[in-house]
Nucleic acid binder design. Structure first.
Length: 274
DNA sequence: ATAAGGCCCTGACCGC
DNA sequence: TGCGGTCAGGGCCTTA
């Protein structure tokens, strides 16, 4: 499912196809993806606009338009944006099509229909409450320490909380905690300075390597050209079937539920909180 | 500030 | 073969 490394990859790979292009038409096959404004207004306001810039904030993709507005897309769990020639018929799970002025089309494929789109005057209306970008220079161990200080919430839940830090979801949270050797149920305010530094290093390392690997192709993640990523081949705990072994200790990876989300960890590498 | 539950969705999976 | 039930999960919302 698209988390920060997948959205970053999609954004980077979409740039050559869409930058400077104009949206000549839009086909909405599932109106409810449009959160704001109405599907009708979304379509009429978007058609004719040029695409000036692509950026990412957390798991959101932001397209700056010539009219001054921004198109914001969230792929949620199963969304992908696929570049197709105009003549290609949409396959079963395509929910929206952005027709471009050069004969290409962007197909928004989303089997589970969880994806969302907004057309707003200002990106902050949608992404304003997000926490820091974990790969930006201003996300320092000190910043992480300050944000953890007053939080008596399991660290796994904090990592997945987009207002705590942006872009990390269930699978990268598990990988990060495994790499940092921190148990998912440890409370935010219980981490030592050393553990916070380990955690900070792990967040940046896991995300950076996953971006180099073009994301993790589990579930329905595809790159704009239909290709896959290979980040999941490095996964140690995330998306492991029960019974798989920790590569360090050779003992089974355990699964617990934290805040309603499946959580995988090694009980030896990541010792139980007292 | 925190916790728990529901909602949106569909494919995969399970037991019968 | 097919049916019904359950689960997964990001973000957001409501209720405690």
């Amino acid at each position: 499912m698209p988390e920060l490394p997948e959205v970053e990859t999609i954004k980077n790979e979409l740039v050559p196809y869409v930058l400077g292009r104009r949206i000549s038409d839009i086909t909405l096959l599932w109106d409810r993806m449009v959160r704001q404004p109405s599907a009708e207004e979304f379509r009429s306001q978007l058609v004719g606009q040029g695409i000036l810039e692509l950026s990412r904030r957390g798991k959101y993709m932001i397209l700056s338009l010539t009219g001054g507005e921004v198109l914001i897309i969230h792929l949620k769990m199963t969304g992908s944006l696929l570049v197709k020639p105009e003549a290609v018929e949409p396959e079963k799970y395509v929910r929206a099509i952005f027709h471009l002025d050069n004969g290409d089309a962007i197909h928004f494929r989303d089997p589970r229909k969880f994806g969302s789109m907004w057309l707003v005057p200002n990106a902050s209306l949608v992404v304003g409450k997000l926490g820091p970008e974990p790969l930006e220079p201003d996300f320092t161990p000190q910043v992480l320490a300050e944000r953890l200080e007053k939080r008596s919430v399991p660290i796994k839940a904090l990592l997945c909380d987009q207002s705590f830090v942006a872009g990390i979801g269930n699978m990268y949270a598990d990988e990060v905690l495994y790499a940092a050797k921190i148990h998912p149920l440890r409370l935010g305010n219980s981490l030592s300075r050393e553990e916070i530094e380990q955690l900070h290093r792990a967040i940046q390392l896991i995300l950076r390597v996953a971006i180099e690997d073009k994301g993790a192709s589990v579930e329905d993640y595809f790159r704009p050209d239909g290709g896959v990523g290979k980040a999941h081949f490095r996964f140690q705990v995330a998306h492991r079937l029960s019974g798989e072994l920790c590569p360090i200790h050779g003992i089974p990876i355990e699964r617990i539920v934290v805040r309603g989300r499946g959580t995988y960890f090694c009980p030896r590498c990541q010792p139980q909180p007292v």
